[in-house]
Design a protein around this nucleic acid. Structure first.
Length: 504
RNA sequence: GAGUCCGUAGCUCAGCUGGUAGAGCAUUUGACUUUUAAUCAAAUGGUCCCGGGUUCGAGUCCCGGCGGACUCACCA
């Protein structure tokens, strides 16, 4: 094994480890340490008048600070709930002649980052701090790396562990040292939990569908490709699970959903990670108008679960119903005073260029509309806003509007200038669907490399007959970013994708 | 991909118009039996991201590379 050279502090910690073993203390014991209380429980519930009920507590956690003072000392212990102070007095920890536990194990061999267990009684110090007085001291795990612990006084934090690269590469350190980071991930958990409970309470079945797919589909994106050895064939990591969930609707499930990791082989930015999470949901016998109301209710509830209120704190964003609704062309008209539906190609090109667009070759109308919408409309939509009735060219899986076949029954929810939901009355006409795939194939041969390949089995399923269905996709990462005011997707992913680290 | 900025001790950072490396914390040793950014005294700690160039001399200036941050454009 090719281990790197140790720093001075690491040499010290390994010597401490060795010394613990010489003293007969296992630095990584196998037996459980039966914890009776968490730090937050003690701080919340302890009262000096019933101190007699607090004479035998057991706490465990990571040593975050040590203040020794000769024959007594203090430590701060961090567990999942928070910090608690420990008081270690030599004469209590070592009542007999052997002072090793205090003089060596605590004073010399314990370092910041070590995990220890304490048994003792709770009391309040002169300075008013609820503290556990240690009667017993158990080593639970020796830390061999120095921890970059910040210091804090009067609410000001010094030497904060703030380098984004180090924080993301060593999230385990980040989570220990930066409580607000842990808080954000707890909020993401509340988001997912609330959404799942909402779905389940509406009669939806949670399902799992393939991640490795022989044909990718359900979105317009470049896939990751891998290879199955036994079958000697390429497989794609899914870019969406839409086509599989619709197969389940054909199969008789009326409401299915999946929290799905999807994978797209595209650029990375503060809004894009190669793998990301979508919640996709399909409801038979419903349409996109029903889905709009469903999404409004669901996201309002999620926002309340995360922040206690539909307003996102310190932002102008509110998820309170009802949300503003525009048609796609209505929104363009509102923000550019141009009727993009009837305007000529040249007028659209002129408008797009005025908005800052540059084109390598002559764009088609769908590209122009998309360009105009994303530069003139999207950035202006701060509160959640429903945009509906997209042009059919931009929506190969959505049902056409009966009164205008150039438009589809599709809506997106745009919030904080970004799309967070995408929904349709799903196309269930197998003949139309086959034609849309053919258009995609034509676009592919014309040079567009983000098109949908034809999925013959999916078409077969539609030919067996799919009930009219409303479908929805929610971008969980982006929703988490908005609800926790994160300015980068990396802040809402425990382990965002990064360049490989060079350990040599 | 384009532009701007950054890379110095384990961590957070200073280092002027080029003159040979600094602080706080962490670590080590000692003192201290209710402290809390504990305090006090002392000590250790550096491939100044890498490579080349200019120069008597480069952490500092120039070129190239690597890594990162931010802003902008595109897919969720």
């Amino acid at each position: 094994m090719n281990e790197r050279e140790w720093t001075g502090e690491e040499v010290v910690r390994r010597a401490e480890l060795q010394r613990l073993r010489e003293l007969g203390i296992d630095p990584y014991p196998a037996r459980e340490f039966p914890v009776t209380h968490h730090a937050a429980d003690i701080l919340r519930d302890f009262k000096p008048e019933n101190a007699d009920q607090w004479t035998n507590v057991a706490v465990a956690g990571r040593v975050m600070n040590r203040r020794t003072q000769g024959k007594a000392g203090f430590m701060d212990l961090l567990d999942e709930s928070g910090r608690i102070q420990i008081y270690l007095k030599r004469d209590i920890l070592c009542p007999g002649p052997d002072e090793t536990l205090y003089k060596e194990v605590f004073e010399k061999l314990t370092a910041i980052g070590d995990v220890v267990g304490i048994r003792g009684r709770v009391f309040v110090t002169k300075t008013g701090h609820v503290t556990v007085e240690a009667r017993d001291y158990v080593f639970l795990a020796k830390s061999l790396r120095p921890w970059p612990v910040p210091r804090e006084k009067d609410g000001v934090v010094y030497d904060k562990f703030s380098d984004p690269e180090l924080r993301h590469r060593m999230r385990y350190v980040d989570l220990v040292l930066n409580p607000e980071v842990k808080e954000r991930f707890l909020k993401r958990g509340a988001l997912v939990r609330t959404m799942r409970e909402f779905m389940l309470s509406h009669g939806c079945h949670e399902v799992e569908t393939p991640i490795l797919q022989p044909v990718y589909g359900g979105a317009l994106a470049k896939p990751f490709v891998t290879h199955h050895n036994a079958l000697d064939m390429p497989l794609y990591l899914r870019i969406a699970n839409e086509l599989y969930l619709k197969r389940l609707i054909v199969g008789g499930f009326e409401r299915v959903f999946e929290f799905a990791k999807d994978f797209r082989n595209e650029g990375m930015s503060r809004f894009h990670n190669p793998e990301f999470t979508q919640m996709e949901f399909y409801a038979a016998y419903k349409d996109y108008l029903w889905m709009m109301n469903f999404v409004e209710e669901m996201l309002e509830r999620v926002a309340v679960a995360v922040n206690g209120t539909p307003e996102v704190p310190d932002t102008p964003i509110s998820f309170a119903r009802p949300w503003k609704r525009f048609t796609f062309f209505g929104a363009i008209l509102e923000y550019t005073a141009v009727d993009a539906q009837t305007a000529s190609d040249d007028e659209l090109i002129e408008l797009a260029q005025r908005l800052g667009a540059r084109f390598d070759r002559r764009p088609d109308r769908a590209q122009l509309w998309d360009e105009i919408f994303s530069s003139a409309v999207e950035p202006r939509l701060v509160n959640p806003t429903i945009i509906m009735d997209y042009p059919v060219e931009m929506s190969p899986l959505a049902k056409r509007k009966p009164e205008n076949p150039a438009l589809t029954e599709r809506f997106e929810v745009v919030c904080n200038g970004k799309e967070i939901c995408n929904a349709y009355s799903e196309l269930n006409d197998p003949i139309d669907q086959r034609a849309r795939f053919a258009e995609q194939a034509a676009a592919r041969s014309a040079g567009n490399d983000e098109t949908m390949p034809l999925d013959e089995d999916f078409l077969r399923a539609l030919e067996f007959g799919m009930p009219p269905t409303a479908g929805l996709g929610v971008g969980i990462d982006r929703l988490a970013m908005i609800l926790t005011r994160a300015n980068s997707i990396q802040e809402v992913l425990f382990f965002p994708h990064m360049r490989p680290e060079n350990f040599s």
